[in-house]
Amino acid sequence: MSALLDIKQLSLHTENVRLLYGVDLTIAPGERVGLIGESGSGKSLTAMAATGLLPTNIRASGSITLAGRPVIDASEHQLNLLRGSAAAVVFQEPLTALDPLMRIGRQIAEPLRRRAARDGQRLSGTELDAAVLAMMGDVALPDPERIARAYPHEISGGQRQRVAIAMALACKPSLLIADEPTTALDVTTQAEILCLLDRLVRERNMALLFISHDLPVVAGIVDRVVVLRQGEVVEAGPVHQVFAHPQHAYTQSLVAAAHAFDTALGAAP
């Protein structure tokens, strides 16, 4: 089976700073991979590079293939075809990811309509409204009719993140990239969003690239992890193996720290 996302020897530089060096990352269709790193590790840059969203002052070398097409040096038009259908992104801060002046319903309708147009269908009027409500039902937004008419600031952080996920799913991507999607949320909300992501990825047979600094969060949702440190991959492998027997000293220190807080909490209820 050919990989959905295949990053080979990816290096990123600005004029005088090396941001990422020789990163390899492969995701097969339906596979769930966690990208772990602390601030400055380059984990978000890797995700941006994968969807061709790098700032213009960053130069990339190596190769990135998404759904069989090259991403580096691809034209904006080619990238636009890939974004959404091949990969969609959910960001950390749902408030800034949504347009503050647009009603929730319209924000979800936009990618739904675009995706339908790409599939050669026209979606509008009551059909589109129904699709929007169905989409909101899929991400378990309560009272979808009211929320569809609301603006982003009128709903809670967890609900905003559900909206962002609905917008990503509306594109029917083969790969969902979630960049710290629960970091800005409360613990109880985080648990709900993780549960939702887990269910949606399974139901829709999507691949998942989950980017986070939080080891227990990653452990709960992915099969395989890649650990980044200062732009370089220090360790990669199945999540249970890496977390149970970390090889690199850095991974060992992260795992030890995570276990320290875990142990303090006592046995899981």
Partner: peptide, 13 residues
């Protein structure tokens, strides 16, 4: 992430 802000202004400035 902060990295992007930090690299946005190169030394040329």
């Amino acid at each position: 992430m902060t990295t992007l802000d930090q690299i946005a202004a190169p030394n040329r400035r």
